[in-house]
Amino acid sequence: MGKLTPKDLERIKTAHADDGKDWIKVGMSTCGIAAGADKVYALFVEEIKKRNLNIQVKKCGCQGMCYSEPSVEVRVKGLPDVIYGKVDKEGVIKILDKHVCGNALVKDSIYELRTKR
């Protein structure tokens, strides 16, 4: 990448500003992985490819809610950002079918609503 200057920091920050795109974040720290987050992540990637969806899957660290791992945060335009907990194979399919494609939140599995910061 080469050495960065303080100006470059600004540039990267602007480039990474919220671009309004949809994404799915999977918590991939030890607590998440122990609960099966890596499988959830792989399944998201696979199913999104299969369905040809325009949504990005990202990795992130522990959200602090270790009791509900694997946890997945979803941002889809028009819906509030929510964190789904205890996501399993079925949960992945539900999130994609309902939340991402159906514009409806999945019941009984939301553990936290991200307040806007």
Binding site: S68, L105, D108, E112
Partner: peptide, 10 residues
């Protein structure tokens, strides 16, 4: 209206 049962509301 979409009524959503959530697992935890904080």
């Amino acid at each position: 209206v979409q009524v959503v049962r959530v697992a935890d509301i904080g």
